[in-house]
Each structure stands twice: as structure tokens, then as C-alpha cells.
Computed example of a mutant assay.
Amino acid sequence: MAVFNLTSSEASTFILTGIPGLEASHVWISIPFSTFYIIGLLGNFTILFVVGREQTLHKPMYLLLCILAFTEISTTTSIMPKALCIFWFNLKGITVGGCLTQMFFLYAGTMMHSAILVTMAFDRYVAICNPLRYTTILTNARVAKLGLVGLIRPVLFVLPLPLLLSRHPFCANRIIPHMYCDHMAVVKMACGDITVSRMYGLVAAFVIIGLDLTLIALSYALIIRAILRISSKNAHQKALNTCTAHLCVMLISYPPFFFSTLTYRFGQGIAPHIHIILANIYLVVPPMVNPIIYGVKTKELREKVGKYTCRR
């Protein structure tokens, strides 16, 4: 690994190394990452465009899908342009302020994503368990309010992360062995007692995500109970199909999050480049796959997308 000597003029600068040990392969590694990023942008912008243009899609379910798409665009864009600059142009420097700002948007977007998945689970619960009251319970105005709450919550819980770190001086070695400003990577460079910063990041992540998973599990427990009360097998199948897309999105979102969070803190035996690659796959693959999942599984959306993409 190259050794970086920081001068006094670089006192407020960090160095992002990219993927330690694989610097010679950065250009090749950039190909799948940039492909995932571009496909994710195209897919999510397509959803925003189609839902915005089609009045028939101005429903709570599609409004939630638009909020999810916007969140995924914001989250991946907070890290990928800088990561590609590292891969392509070897531009590894980032200011302390820029690093803390990137950290805020990254983790706020991640928690916002989780909040949307909770709201989507509630949407599926109402659609299956109270179908006759669906339009009165989940109005567009109510979904917008839930989205606002989902935005305020991560801002309140994530803002202390950069604020706590900004109070610490940073040691001479300002090299971050990562593609972006990961919280724990920056914490390890801080001088002095970092116990509060370290514990706050871990507790906030697991309390918030744990609460979200609990609410999702409760929603699905009620959904399963309602489905089991239905005698018709066709009705069973139809009810389960309405949840398939949401379940798939959760399966590609939550397990990688917990794996990445735990291995960075406790997985000392895992090679750094393996952890960093997996952490970044977790951030770029779901935004690429989620629009495809909803496009394939949601007939109404699929038809509207086809109306624009297959037009002669």
C-alpha cells in the first residue's frame, strides 16, 4: 500500500484509499460498480418519471415507491461519484467537512430507506387485512406525512454522528482504508476517548433498525394470520403475491446491512478488501435491483413503464 505523507496544508484533509490491496485493479473494479450505479439511476429515475406522468399511479403504494427511489438515488450518489474519482483519476483527498457531510447523507439515507420499508409493510397490512378501508386509511396526504416523519427521524438520529466526531482532533495518520467515509473508519482516526462516538453509532443503528424490523415482523404476523383465515387457496396466493416484491427488497437490504455493520466492528479475521467490496455492494446493488423487482412484480407499473419504453 502506498504511504501518504500529509503536509501542513493538508491538515484538514483525509485520504480515501479505495480498496486496500487492490489499488492496481481499481479501473477494472470500477466497471461493475459504475454499471450498477448507472442502472440504478436509470431504474429509479424511470419510476419517478412514470409515476409522475401517470395520474392513475398517483396512489399511496406508488408514492411510497417514489420516495424509496429518491432515497436510493440520494444514498448512492453520496458515495459513488467520489468512489469513481478514486478509481479513475486517483483523486483520494477529501476534506474533513466533506467527509462528515458524506457520512451524514449516507447514514441518513440508509435509515430513511428502512423507514420506507416499514411504511410499505404497513401498506401491505392495510391492503390485505382492511381492504375495504384501504383508501380511507392510506391517503396520499397520510403517506406524505409518514414520509416526512421517516425523513425527520434519520436527521435527528444521524446528525450526532458527525457532530460528535467534529469535536475530536484527528491523529497524524489520516488515511481511511475505504471507498467512502465510513463512520467506524473515521472514529478510529480520532484522538482521545472515542467511546461515546463508537457506542452511539452501534446503538443507534441497531435500535432504529431493530425497531423497524420489529414493526415489519408485526405487520407480517398480522398479514399471515389474516391469510390463514381465508379458505380459498387462490385468495391465499393472491394475497401473498402482493407482498412478494416488498419481501424481496427486504431480503436484499437488511442482511447485508447487519453483515457490514458487524464485520467492521467485530470481524477482525475478515480481509479488509472483502469487507469493503461487500459493504459497497450493499449500497449499490439494492438501488439497482429494487426498481426491477417492483417493475416485474407490479403489473400496473410494468404496463405504464412499457408504454414509454416500448413506444415507437
Rank of each mutant, 00 (worst) to 15 (best):
I47G: 02
D123Y: 11
V196T: 13
T139A: 10
V284D: 00
R133E: 15
H113D: 12
T244C: 13
S253N: 07
P162Q: 11
P32S: 11
I29E: 02
Y62R: 07
H26A: 04
F89L: 09
G267R: 10
T77E: 04
G210S: 04
F4C: 00
R153P: 00
L100S: 05
A141G: 09
C181V: 07
M61I: 08
L218Y: 10
G201A: 11
A83S: 14
F45W: 12
H246N: 13
K304E: 14
A108H: 07
I252A: 06
M250A: 13
K233W: 06
L151G: 07
G210C: 06
Y220I: 08
Y264L: 07
F33S: 06
G40C: 03
I208S: 12
E10V: 00
F266K: 01
G21Q: 02
T139M: 04
L283A: 11
L247D: 06
L106H: 10
G43R: 09
F4S: 01
K233T: 15
L211M: 13
S78I: 01
C191A: 14
R312Q: 14
F257Q: 08
V289K: 03
L213C: 14
I176W: 01
Q268I: 08
M184R: 04
I252Q: 06
L202E: 11
G306A: 10
Y254Q: 05
G93T: 09
I276D: 01
D193H: 07
V285Y: 13
N140H: 05
E303G: 09
S74W: 07
A2N: 05
Y180A: 13
L247G: 10
S74N: 05
I293E: 13
N44K: 06
F87P: 01
H236N: 13
I274S: 05
D123Q: 09
R229G: 14
K304G: 03
H273P: 01
N234D: 14
F157P: 00
L278C: 09
P287T: 13
P162Y: 04
K145S: 15
L64D: 08
A108V: 04
A2M: 01
L100W: 01
T244E: 10
H275Q: 12
L211Y: 12
T244S: 13
G18M: 02
F49A: 06
M103V: 07
R225S: 12
I223M: 10
L215Y: 08
C171T: 11
I94M: 12
Y180G: 03
K307R: 14
T13A: 02
I152N: 04
C129P: 02
L41Q: 10
M1D: 07
F45C: 12
R133S: 14
P291L: 10
T13S: 10
G306M: 11
F70Q: 08
R174P: 04
A205C: 10
M111I: 10
F33G: 02
S78F: 03
S197H: 04
L247M: 15
T75D: 01
P60C: 05
Q102E: 15
W88V: 03
A11E: 15
Y294T: 11
L165N: 09
G201P: 00
F45D: 00
V50A: 01
I176S: 00
K188G: 03
I176Y: 02
N130E: 15
A271W: 11
L156T: 09
G201V: 11
